[in-house]
Simulated assay, not measured.
Amino acid sequence: MLLMTFATKSLSSVSAGATRVVTLTLKPVNAIVKALIHRREVMRLGELDERGLKDIGLVRSDLDGALSVSWLSDPSLILAERSSARHGVASLRRQAALRQAETAAAPRAPARGTPAEPPALSGAPSHSVACSA
Rank of each mutant, 00 (worst) to 15 (best):
L11P: 00
L11A: 12
A66N: 07
L79S: 00
R112A: 12
V129C: 00
A133R: 10
S61C: 03
R82H: 01
S12A: 04
A101F: 11
L63P: 01
A35L: 04
I78N: 04
R51K: 14
D49Y: 00
V22K: 06
L121A: 15
L79K: 00
E47T: 12
P107F: 13
R51I: 12
I56A: 02
E102P: 10
R99N: 10
R20K: 11
G113N: 09
S122E: 14
G65V: 02
A104P: 05
H127K: 06
G123M: 01
R51Y: 13
K34I: 15
G113Q: 11
A116S: 15
W71E: 13
R108H: 03
G65E: 11
R44L: 12
A35M: 05
A18V: 03
L72I: 12
D64C: 01
S13C: 02
R86V: 05
Q100H: 11
E117C: 03
L63M: 02
L36C: 12
V69D: 11
I78D: 08
K27N: 06
S132E: 11
S13F: 04
L67C: 05
V42P: 02
A16L: 08
S132P: 06
L77P: 02
V21N: 02
L11M: 13
A80E: 15
A31C: 05
R82C: 06
Q100M: 07
V21A: 10
R112I: 12
A85T: 10
S126C: 01
I32W: 07
W71P: 04
L58N: 01
S122K: 13
V14K: 07
V42W: 05
D64A: 07
A130R: 13
C131K: 06
H38A: 14
A106I: 00
A90I: 07
L24A: 10
V33F: 13
A85D: 08
P119H: 00
Q95G: 03
V21T: 09
L2W: 04
A16E: 15
G123K: 01
A97P: 00
R82F: 11
G52V: 02
T25W: 10
L24W: 01
A124R: 14
R40M: 11
A105Q: 13
V29L: 08
S132T: 14
R99T: 03
S70D: 14
V33C: 07
S128Q: 13
E117Y: 03
L24G: 14
P75C: 08
A7D: 11
M1F: 12
S91H: 04
G88C: 00
M1K: 15
S91L: 08
S15T: 11
D49V: 05
A31S: 07
R39G: 06
S12H: 11
